[in-house]
């Protein structure tokens, strides 16, 4: 069993009639477009401030990439890998990888969801805060009387004190 590189991707050629994995057909354009749309919307949402939106963006983008893995396994329509037959079978490895990837995505989704909830508990919102360096720069600029308004800036170096908004 071996693979051949051709203009339409890789073809698995085998002397064994049991396994004719079909990967040479060009995958469906609709699926490719769906991958593009999912990843694009995912990236857009990842750039948001709110953790919930970031989470949704992560879910969309990773689903897009999961579809991409399926696409890497070649076109659909072939029989699943089961029993012995001489007809082309679909690539089982891509499906196994998608399963693993889905499980990982699920676990991380739960974790980020928990973080967003905890953030809401603490502050009443779930927005990702500026990092310390950003705030230091902002304070520095404010001290020099440039663009930022010092009233917006938190008091301590660490900024958000845990007691704020907890009550």
């Amino acid at each position: 069993m071996h693979w051949l590189a051709g203009s339409s991707g890789l073809v698995m050629v085998t002397d064994d009639p049991v396994a004719q994995i079909q990967t040479d057909r060009i995958p469906s354009l609709a699926l490719v477009l769906v991958v593009g749309i999912l990843v694009a919307t995912g990236v857009y949402l990842l750039l948001e401030r709110s953790l919930t939106r970031v989470l949704l963006g992560f879910v969309l983008a990773s689903n897009g990439i999961n579809l991409l893995i399926l696409l890497a396994g070649g076109a659909g329509g072939a029989a699943p890998i089961l029993g012995r037959s001489s007809e082309p079978i679909s690539d089982p490895l891509a499906q196994a990888m998608v399963l693993t990837s889905i499980v990982i995505t699920l676990a991380l989704t739960a974790f980020v969801g928990a973080m967003a909830y905890r953030s809401w508990q603490l502050y009443g919102h779930d927005e990702v805060q500026d990092d310390i360096e950003d705030r230091r720069v902002a304070r520095f600029m404010a001290e020099r009387g440039e663009d930022e308004d010092p009233a917006d800036l938190p008091e301590t170096a660490w900024g958000l004190d845990s007691d704020r908004g907890v009550a």
């Binding site: 990842l46 990439i65 502050y123 990702v128 845990s162």
Partner: peptide, 19 residues
């Protein structure tokens, strides 16, 4: 609060790198 703030940046960046 502090760890959540730092953690959310860390987690999101790591998620993107994994993607």
């Amino acid at each position: 609060a502090q760890r959540l703030r730092a953690g959310s940046i860390y987690v999101v960046v790591a998620l993107v790198s994994s993607l």
